[in-house]
């Protein structure tokens, strides 16, 4: 398979939980017609719809514990 990303299929890693991982760079067209782009080697696209920086993942999909050890937070 050629190494040039233009000539090969772009790999997307999908799991039930967590973001879609897409090899960068990418352009994402949003519903209002605006385009956001990232040159990162890999981007994490939000699938839970809770991200405050949508379409990028900000880890908002994580579970929240009711009474966790306070030391676990930093």
């Amino acid at each position: 398979m050629p190494d040039n990303p233009v000539e090969r299929s772009r790999r997307i890693i999908a799991r039930r939980e967590g973001p879609l991982l897409v090899e960068g760079p990418v352009e994402v067209v949003l519903e209002d017609g605006t385009t956001v782009s990232s040159e990162r080697f890999c981007v994490a696209l939000c699938t839970c719809r809770r991200s405050r920086i949508f379409p990028w993942c900000d880890t908002s999909h994580r579970r929240h514990a009711r009474a966790a050890c306070p030391d676990a937070d930093r």
């Binding site: 009711r66 676990a72 937070d73």
Partner: peptide, 14 residues
């Protein structure tokens, strides 16, 4: 364990 966000967490960043 680090993936679970404490809902009532205290800590420096909070």
């Amino acid at each position: 364990e680090l993936l679970v966000e404490p809902a009532d967490g205290r800590g420096v960043t909070r």
